[in-house]
Design a binder for these strands. Structure first.
Length: 493
DNA sequence: TCCGCTAACACATTTGAACCGC
DNA sequence: AGCGGTTCAAATGTGTTAGCGG
């Protein structure tokens, strides 16, 4: 079934050739880009927290990276401020960046080894949420899992020395609620709870079929709820105060909410007059230091404006930690709180000190295990041995499969969504065994070192074809099955 | 009526092309 | 012609708001 038969023709689907991924995924058709099945990257990323959060994850085929590989959340204190209130992320049809942005630093890599950095965002639980006056509470079951996508850092692949020399920013990740998104943004459901994850994979290039290990990290502070409009006014205020793009809405600016509404209604510039009338519940907190160094190409230059203090050097690595259901909050588990910063002062102003995202959920709503907190990311295992007894009771990716993909009334076609479904079912079978599956890894004899069919080995050149916007390297966002297919030999290897 | 979503809007910031002088 | 600095418009990233639809 051709795409046009599956989906009504929509103007937004008309993307100029330069913006499409045709150049890179020559063996994939549009339907897969739009309706990519559940994620299965070539690296077989662990399942989402909803299915064993904080527990050893299902194995990827490669051995885990050495234990001294550590990842640290750079702007952790800012994240903690938002987490204390209950982080909300706006998602829009056209895609919205995350704020705070995901910024990490890595140590322990081999300087000369090549690594690929990936990020994805997975649901925390199976609930939909609803804002009730001053807190979030579950409101029914979650929507069916969407075609999840993986964001590959645009610098990938790069030697370990590159990743370790400066903080790594994932600020170009965009979130959308458009299930037909063609721009490669990460598709999420509104009013759901998500957890970003970061993955380090040792590989020669993004499309390499030979890879030498992986480690995955999560930071509890980065958990967020997706919304199409902010529900918690404290979040709105904190975003306005900390995001430079929202300066226009700060109380001490000329365009605060009240002013604007007044001006719109009266068409009068009465900023000073209104300022005394209403200061709002949250007095403007001066940013004593820049909280946001502005967009950068890919990674951030420490000396060039890294705004937030680096984590203390003694921050310990937190390997797999069993979930602690009795723990009241992640903050309580935090062994190494950062010193008070300007940001935390803002938090105090907002009366959110000591609170966590979970505090904004009714106790009965905390149906997921507590996340182990640490200054470094909690690492998933990528064990090479089977770990079916790791606590995940069923194939994790089974739930990721959108129910809408299951109806198959058309004969399978090599390049339509149904075929992707079949491909994914194979993967599910393999992953469900939790063993060192061979699904994503070809037999050694089948490995090829050649470039992508019709493309040179130089991955950067491939990027130019791949990226929606040529020029800069905004990062790669595409669905796991696309990569999976490449690695499983079904693509253009 | 309520709630969630979307598009339009105004504003701040970033980016890059155009321009100028040396 | 090449280089470096400046200017300015376009692009992009924000939150707000009205209106729509289920």
């Amino acid at each position: 079934m051709a795409l046009t038969q599956v989906l009504p023709k929509q103007p937004e689907l008309e993307v100029s050739p330069g913006q499409r991924y045709d150049g890179i995924f020559t063996a994939l058709d549009t339907s897969q880009r739009i309706l990519g099945a559940a994620p299965l990257t070539p690296f077989s990323l662990p399942p989402g927290p909803a299915l064993g959060f904080g527990q050893p994850q299902s194995p990827c085929e490669a051995p885990r990276l050495p234990g001294n590989v550590k990842m640290t959340l750079e702007n952790r204190d800012l994240w903690k401020q938002f987490h204390a209130i209950g982080t909300e992320m706006i998602i829009t049809k056209s895609g919205r960046r995350m704020f705070p942005q995901c910024k990490v630093s890595i140590t322990g890599l081999e300087p000369d080894g090549k690594y690929v950095l990936l990020a994805d965002i997975v649901p925390v639980d199976n609930s939909r949420y609803k804002w009730q006056e001053d807190h979030w509470e579950p409101s029914g079951r979650a929507e069916p899992r969407l075609p999840e996508r993986v964001y590959i850092h645009p610098d990938s692949p790069a030697p370990g020395s590159h990743w370790m020399k400066q903080p790594i920013s994932f600020h170009k990740i965009k979130l959308t609620n458009n299930t037909l998104d063609q721009m490669g943004h990460i598709i999420l459901h509104s009013m759901h709870r998500y957890q970003p994850r970061f993955h380090i994979v040792r590989a020669q290039d993004v499309f390499s079929r030979r890879w030498g290990g992986c480690s995955s990290f999560t930071f509890p502070e980065t958990m967020f709820l997706t919304v199409t409009a902010y529900q918690n006014e404290k979040i709105t205020q904190l975003k306005i105060q900390t995001n430079p793009f929202a300066k226009g809405f700060r109380e001490n600016g000329l365009k605060n909410k009240r002013d604007r509404s007044v001006r719109v209604k009266r068409k009068l510039p009465s900023a000073e007059q209104e300022e005394e009338e209403e200061q709002g519940p949250y007095p403007p907190a001066e940013c004593k230091r820049p909280l946001y160094s502005g967009p950068c190409d890919s990674t951030l230059d420490i000396g060039g404006g890294l705004a937030l203090p680096l984590p203390s050097p003694d921050c310990s690595f937190h390997p797999i930690t069993p979930p602690n259901p009795t723990s009241p909050s992640t903050e309580a588990n935090d062994p190494s709180p950062l010193p008070i910063t300007a940001n935390q002062e803002q938090a105090a102003n907002l009366e959110m000190s000591g609170q966590t995202t979970d505090n904004f959920l009714r106790p009965e709503s905390q149906a997921y295990p507590e996340i182990p907190a640490g200054q470094d990311g909690s690492m998933y295992t990528c064990q090479s041995e089977s770990s079916s007894a790791a606590g995940v009771s069923h194939p994790p990716n089974l739930q990721r499969f959108p129910a809408t993909f299951q109806a198959s009334q058309e004969p399978p076609h090599p390049y339509n969504s149904q075929s992707e479904y079949r491909l994914y079912r194979q993967d599910m079978t393999c992953i469900g065994d939790y063993g060192p599956s061979s699904c994503a890894i070809p037999a050694p004899g089948r490995e090829e070192e050649g470039g992508i069919r019709g493309y040179p080995k130089n991955s950067d050149l491939r990027f130019q074809h791949f990226l929606p916007n040529s020029g800069t390297k905004p990062g790669l966002q595409f669905s796991g099955p696309q990569i999976q297919r490449l690695y499983s030999g079904g693509g253009w290897m």
